[in-house]
Amino acid sequence: MEELAIRKAEFYDKHDIRLVRGTVTQVDRSARQVVLSDGEAMAYDGLALCTGGRVRILSVSGIDLPGIFYLRTFADVEAIREATAAGRHAVIVGGGYIGLETAASLRALGLEVTILEAAERVLARVTAPEVSAFYERVHRDAGVVIRTGALVEAMAGDDRVREVVLAGGERISADLVIVGVGLVPNTELAAEAGLHVDSGIVIDDLARTSDHRIVAAGDCASHRMARYDRLVRLESVPSAGEQAKTAAATLCGNERPIAALPWFWSDQYDLKPADRGIEHRLRRVSF
């Protein structure tokens, strides 16, 4: 788990950064302070909202049955690990990056895998048809069953999930189910503070919110990109990093506009393709 941390604990001490493990319950813009769940109030001159997101819950009957998992936290990983065993059949709901990467990992562990995607192709929300076709071919060659246009209607079972029920009545047997249908940005603090929220916390090219003393970055932020002339909330590590650099510069009184072309990377099987925005270039890396 320690290897997943972006920075080790010593980093914060070395750079004189106070790390507080707590929950912020309120942003008081008039008093320029944040209030923690234990009642402590912390004043700020500048504030960065990097609140990320939480998993989107699938709203179907039977979703609370044991054996159904989401993938967001380390605890989720441990729970999935305990449920896996070679020969078991895993059904993955959602053909985005989370679903595809999970499928690759489970196949490496010897599980049978079926992906159910509601859209007509995998990665439909984030990439071009050519890239979708590439990933579908890679997974099918690895033995994954991919069902597109598959609408999940219910989960069925007795003491745990046994079947995934599709619209139309078809039933797919399952020893475990992993749901990856996106995330919901954590914008409640911003909205309650009166900041402009539209899909995410709206930021300008300098990562400033509607209150210029407050910046935002990452999965919670929605940025109007001149390249596409629309608000874009991009759930991507490179995007979060670029926005963070700009947000930090803004808080320090410098201007470093967000200008990077959106792109993604993904580890699947022995591939690490990079999908760089509109160019959709694929790069094969041998591990």
Rank of each mutant, 00 (worst) to 15 (best):
A5V: 07
Y12H: 15
H15K: 12
R21V: 05
A31K: 13
D38P: 06
M42H: 12
L49N: 00
G53Q: 04
R54P: 08
R56L: 14
I57P: 06
I63N: 14
Y70C: 11
L71Y: 06
R72C: 14
T73A: 13
T73W: 09
F74T: 15
D76N: 13
I80L: 05
R81V: 06
E82A: 15
A85H: 11
R88L: 10
H89T: 13
V93Y: 01
G94L: 07
I98T: 05
A104H: 03
G110M: 02
G110H: 03
L111D: 02
E112G: 01
E112N: 03
T114I: 11
I115C: 04
L116H: 11
A119G: 03
E120W: 04
V122E: 07
V122K: 03
V122L: 12
L123A: 13
R125M: 12
R125A: 15
E130A: 12
R137Q: 13
R140T: 15
I146Q: 00
I146E: 00
T148H: 11
G149A: 04
V152I: 12
E153A: 15
A154V: 06
R160Y: 12
V161C: 05
V164C: 09
R171Y: 14
S173F: 09
S173V: 15
V179Y: 10
G182V: 01
G182L: 05
A191T: 00
E192R: 14
A193S: 07
H196G: 01
D198Q: 08
G200N: 10
G200F: 08
V202E: 07
D204N: 07
D204Y: 03
D211W: 07
H212W: 10
C220T: 09
C220H: 02
A221I: 10
H223N: 07
A226C: 02
R230S: 13
V237T: 04
P238N: 03
K245A: 08
T246S: 10
A249L: 06
T250W: 05
G253M: 06
G253P: 12
W263L: 04
W265A: 03
D270T: 00
D275C: 08
G277L: 00
H280D: 15
H280I: 04
R283V: 07
F287M: 14
F287G: 14
